[in-house]
């Protein structure tokens, strides 16, 4: 395999693992926000920001962790046929079906970028009293989806390598 493709796979996967492992701990940020919501409601006035902040955190958790979850193989496949195929056959079919993933994520990103630009243009804010700007969370979604697309191409390169009998 050409050296730059191998390097691409190595770099992208290293980056995605790193980001995913950081995003993984957003679980506890989420729990902390929700616990603060319980406490502030019980002892002080209910906090205005907890609900939205929790929602933003949840989105960041599964979007930024998305590429890492792909690497972990956490996303189920229907393995009625797939489970019976040889490694080469799987790689061959994956080479084609990966484009379903890339196209889906690509369209999500397309809509996301337009929506982010719009958020900047009009200074879009959420409808709540806390009124956070919406651009940051939209950027987070776009970045996570973009990383997943990069990861999908890394899978594609790996599959092509497998077909050519090379291990990356």
């Amino acid at each position: 395999m050409p050296q730059f493709l191998v390097a691409y796979v190595r770099i992208i996967e290293a980056v995605n693992i790193r980001i995913g492992r950081i995003a993984m701990y957003l679980l506890f940020v989420l729990a902390a926000i929700l616990l603060w919501s319980v406490v502030s409601k019980a002892f002080f006035t209910p906090a205005l920001w907890t609900q939205e902040m929790a929602q933003f955190t949840m989105v960041a958790y599964f979007v930024l962790g998305g590429a890492y979850s792909l690497i972990l193989g956490a996303n189920v496949r229907m393995d009625l046929l797939y489970g019976r195929w040889s490694e080469k056959k799987r790689a061959l079919v994956d080479c084609i079906s990966i484009f379903a993933l890339i196209i889906f994520l690509g369209v999500v990103l397309w809509g996301g970028i337009e929506s982010t630009i719009y958020a900047f243009e009009v200074g879009e804010r959420s409808r709540t009293v806390w009124r956070p700007y919406m651009a940051p969370i939209k950027i987070v979604i776009c970045s996570g989806v973009f990383l997943m697309i990069l990861q999908s191409f890394a899978f594609l390169i790996r599959d092509i390598a497998t077909l050519r009998g090379v291990r990356i």
Binding site: N75, V76, R77, V93, F104
Partner: peptide
């Protein structure tokens, strides 16, 4: 049926 990840299909 191709074994693509369910969400991508």
């Amino acid at each position: 049926l191709t074994g693509a990840r369910v969400f991508s299909g």
